[in-house]
Design a protein around this nucleic acid. Structure first.
Ligand code: FES
Ligand code: FES
Lengths: 162, 162
DNA sequence: CCAATTCCGAGTATTTTACTCAAGTATTCA
DNA sequence: TGAATACTTGAGTAAAATACTCGGAATTGG
């Protein structure tokens, strides 16, 4: 089972994209600022997301990324699959040969678990997440903070906008 | 989410123990031979399993390990929990602080996933696995192979017992 | 042109994993 | 009793994976 920072970042970034998709293309720099993910790392992740046709890029100034399909048509499983090798829980990666070339005692158990996890994440779409209250409240906090930071960079005292 | 070789080995070893529990205490050396897991590594794993009261040890010649409870009372989740830190899928380890000390966008999603995985593995007991056909057939193959190896060590030609 | 932005390939420090090794301690059988 | 068996403990380590960084090329709007 491979669910690492990479997969989590990818989902976070895609969700950020979904949340801001009505404002035109979203640049990786924006996502980087809002979500605290390194820009270079995001570039790596989006290369794969683009390869898997989950996003499309718009180059040049004012460019960024857009979702390729509607938020209701992109599942979390797709996103994780795109960046992680797979979210297979077996040791043999499905080949059934991890103990002296033969199937090990627990192979079928891990297969079942993998199927379970995949099903769960396939049933959740970006649209589902966007609709959740807990996520909207996190979003609100983050947007506020980013605005604050931008103002701050323009040498306007934080107190003025609070 | 932390499901590594460690957790898989632990489940494999516990299942091996369950399969041979009617033959008195099972030594780690036996499990090592049958399942192809390093003896020293098994020692590490069983130290934790014992600590979590899933097995008890019988010292001295002819000793080994026994299950602490009936196979129907030991779930896979318990075994994995004992050796892995946890099978939590969040990045913050449940603390909700992975982005600048605050909850990140996807925290709740990973919490849900963790609960799902935990539930799935909690519902499966060693007894369930022992009863499965696929596992019995793997067992049969392994037992045969071990007998063959033992005879071989006693300098009896393999052909004699085939 | 120039600046913003994506695109691409290598390179690398850190962490984790999956072990090994060595020196114990406890128990039992003969 | 004492030797053999087996568990117990703690430290150490090589290899792999992770989570990045870096430098620069390509693209495009203004
Ligand atoms: S996990 Fe597939 S053979 Fe062991
Ligand atoms: S995963 Fe818990 S706060 Fe990000």
């Amino acid at each position: 089972m491979r669910l690492t920072t990479k997969g989590r970042y990818a989902v976070t970034a895609m969700l950020d994209l979904a949340l801001h998709s009505d404002e035109g293309p979203v640049s990786l720099a924006d996502i980087s600022t809002r979500q605290g993910i390194s820009l270079s790392y995001l570039e790596q992740l989006f290369a794969r997301l683009r390869h898997f046709k989950l996003v499309k890029s718009v180059r040049g100034p004012g460019g960024g990324y857009r979702l390729m399909s509607s938020t209701a048509d992109i599942s979390i499983a797709q996103v994780v699959d795109a960046v992680s090798e797979s979210l297979d829980a077996t040791r043999c990666e499905g080949k059934g040969n991890c103990h002296e070339g033969e199937v090990c005692l627990t192979h079928h158990l891990w297969e079942d678990l993998s199927a379970q996890i995949h099903q769960f994440l396939s049933d959740i779409t970006l649209a589902d997440l966007v609709a959740r209250n807990d996520i909207q409240s996190v979003r609100a906090r983050q947007d506020l903070r980013v605005v604050t930071m931008q103002k701050d960079e323009s040498h306007i005292a934080v107190s003025e906008i609070l």
